[in-house]
Design a protein around this nucleic acid. Structure first.
Length: 577
DNA sequence: GCCGTTTTCGGCCCGACTGTTTTCAGTCG
């Protein structure tokens, strides 16, 4: 069993224990262990018991359970726990506003086991008969159910990418000469993917059998010589297609999509007496193959510059490609710094120096340490006194280290009334202030908009962090007049963050593109809580690319001094004035 | 569940918000 498998089972144990009403610290121990194992770089199966035992938060008991999982792919304790509840009960925990206590009552009192049961009971008004529930809670649950239904069957891009990598590595081990790569929404960099589409080039009789024997396959949905489809553990569907090399480019183009992009490209082909399908680009008149082996030659044959996959959404890229006006999209290597990170001072897992070294190892020239402010008590947020002491410490460490510059910043909460969580004179002492919303998500649009506008007007705010507050597949964005916020940001020189956490990716691609159109600068940040977190920059870059961003649009592509000068706090007048 | 080691037992981040109450329980971060 791999790390993610272990992590998933520990997470489920934590959830089941919580429904049972077990000791909260025991629950936390399982969740903590799930987090540690799930984020480890090396396979836990490669570690000896002593090394596992040495991991923080993993003691004698959990070591034994991890060993059992690695050796037998099962865990007796987990199986016993699962006997006590129907297997579908954990799904209900995914609903907004439904926690373990509610699940326990729903199951215990009304025998509700599934989301469908819950919907029926809510619709019939039976939930309000329960203690602590009323009509409002019923409506809330129905709304949560509807949101949840929209999300099932989709996966975060980071998750889909890991699945794709594991499948590809497995296939390559047996066929090192065969080119295999992701297509579809994963290649386009969409924030969520419905399934994982893979394309293999060449001839290989064994490939499909190898694919369906991948260890994570739970069910084979279909198997043929050129196309197979499987359902993997964790409900991810993966499709593999095999095409001959003369059709490689056409197939890649066809299966990468999007549908809307492909329709527009094929239309352009027809206008030129050509037809495009997954086998190649052909003259209609005599079926002569004009192109097919490479994507670029197909686009070229249609009078188009090569369109990067992230732009293939039929949002103007074909016109731009025809005119030679495609942007020079930002790349990961254009980024020189990361502007959002946490340490053990609040809810991070590593100290300032460890994070700094990891950022340097990730190729960055500067890093802003931006721990939480006091409102996030649960994260041990900093008050003014601690924030300034922390800033001194960050600067000391920065002085000491070669090859990386540190900025002493903070992620300051925007309180429900729009005021900042720390005094302005304290914030003015820092190098960088990100203002973020972490509470009162239920405010109406006018309140939330005013709240963020209020923060933007503060002269000490440089960046708005994860501006819409969405959690992909979990929580919709809060209600917000983004247009007003962007106009204020443009006027004041406040930058908008693209948060690279795969469950945030906030701003979204569309909002980021709108921001650029309004003259707002972007920053791409990791929000790293651990040394491995800097790898996530690639996803923020992917969003920026989908937003048509060039390096000049993103503040942290600049060298340190130019970057500092571009921050709102160092501007002497508003940029649009 | 883990952890420490002047402790092998007794700690282990807690405040805001909501909807339901009539003094609070559950959820969220």
């Amino acid at each position: 069993m791999d790390n993610l498998g272990v992590a998933r089972i520990f997470t489920n144990i934590g959830d089941l224990l919580e429904i049972k009403g077990a000791n909260p610290f025991k629950i936390r121990a399982y969740r903590n262990a799930a987090d540690i194992v799930g984020h480890m770089a090396e396979p836990i199966a490669d570690l000896g018991d002593a090394e596992v035992r040495a991991l923080p938060g993993i003691g004698k008991d959990l070591t034994a359970k991890i060993r059992e999982l690695i050796d037998t792919a099962a865990l007796a304790y987990y199986d016993e726990l699962r006997q006590e509840f129907p297997p579908t009960i954990l799904e209900m925990l995914r609903l907004q506003g439904v926690g373990p206590k509610t699940v326990a009552v729903l199951y215990g009192e009304l025998g509700i086991e599934t989301l469908d049961d819950l919907e029926t009971a809510a619709t019939e008004g039976r939930l309000r008969t329960l203690k602590g529930m009323g009509p409002k809670k019923e409506q809330l649950l129905l709304r949560s159910l509807a949101e949840h239904r929209r999300r099932v069957g989709r996966h975060l891009i980071g998750h889909a990418d890991q699945v794709a990598s594991r499948v590809i590595d497995y296939l390559r081990a047996d066929a090192p000469e065969t080119a295999i790569f992701p297509v579809g929404s994963l290649r386009r960099g969409c924030e969520t993917c419905g399934d994982v589409d893979l394309l293999a080039i060449g001839t290989n009789d064994q490939l499909m059998a190898r694919f369906t024997s991948f260890p994570e396959v739970e069910r084979i949905l279909g198997q043929g010589p050129t196309r197979s489809s499987v359902l993997l553990r964790g409900d991810v569907q993966a499709d593999l297609r095999l095409v001959p090399s003369e059709s490689a480019g056409a197939a890649a183009q066809y299966f990468t999509g999007s549908k809307a992009h492909n329709i527009a490209v094929r239309d352009r082909a027809l206008q030129r007496g050509l037809k495009l399908n997954e086998y190649g680009l052909f003259r209609v008149a005599d079926d002569h193959r004009v192109a097919g082996a490479f994507e670029a030659e197909i686009y070229a044959a249609l009078g188009l510059a090569y369109v990067p996959p992230e732009l293939r959404e039929n949002r103007g890229e074909i016109r731009a490609a025809a005119a030679g006006d495609l942007p020079r999209l930002i790349e990961r290597t254009d980024l020189r710094g990361d502007l959002h990170s946490h340490t053990t001072a609040t809810d991070g897992t590593a100290d300032v120096e460890t994070m700094a070294r990891a950022a340097r190892d990730a190729g960055l020239e500067y890093l802003a340490i931006t721990d939480h402010s006091q409102a996030l008590a649960m994260a041990n947020g900093l008050d003014e006194h601690r924030a300034l002491a922390h800033a001194r410490h960050i600067r000391e460490v920065g002085e000491r280290l070669d090859g990386i510059a540190l900025l002493a910043g903070i992620e300051c909460d925007i309180r429900a009334d729009g005021t900042l969580d720390l005094a302005e004179d304290c914030l003015a002492e820092l190098d960088l202030v990100i203002a973020s919303v972490h509470s009162a998500f239920g405010q109406d649009e006018a309140q939330m908009t005013d709240r963020i506008l209020c923060a933007i007007e503060s002269p000490v705010v440089d960046v708005v962090g994860h501006p819409t507050g969405r959690l992909l597949l979990r929580r919709d964005p809060y209600k917000l007049d983004i247009e007003q916020v962007l106009q204020a940001a443009a006027r004041t020189g406040v930058a908008m963050e693209i948060n690279s956490q795969v469950h945030r990716l906030d701003l979204s691609d569309m909002h980021a593109r709108l921001a650029l159109a309004r003259g707002v600068k972007l920053v791409i940040s990791t929000d790293a809580h651990a040394p491995a977190g800097f790898d996530l920059l690639r996803w923020g870059v992917t969003v920026a690319r989908r937003a048509w961003a060039e390096p000049i649009d993103v503040l942290n592509t600049q060298p340190l001094e130019a970057f500092r000068a571009s921050l709102r706090r160092h501007r002497t007048h508003s940029p649009s004035a």
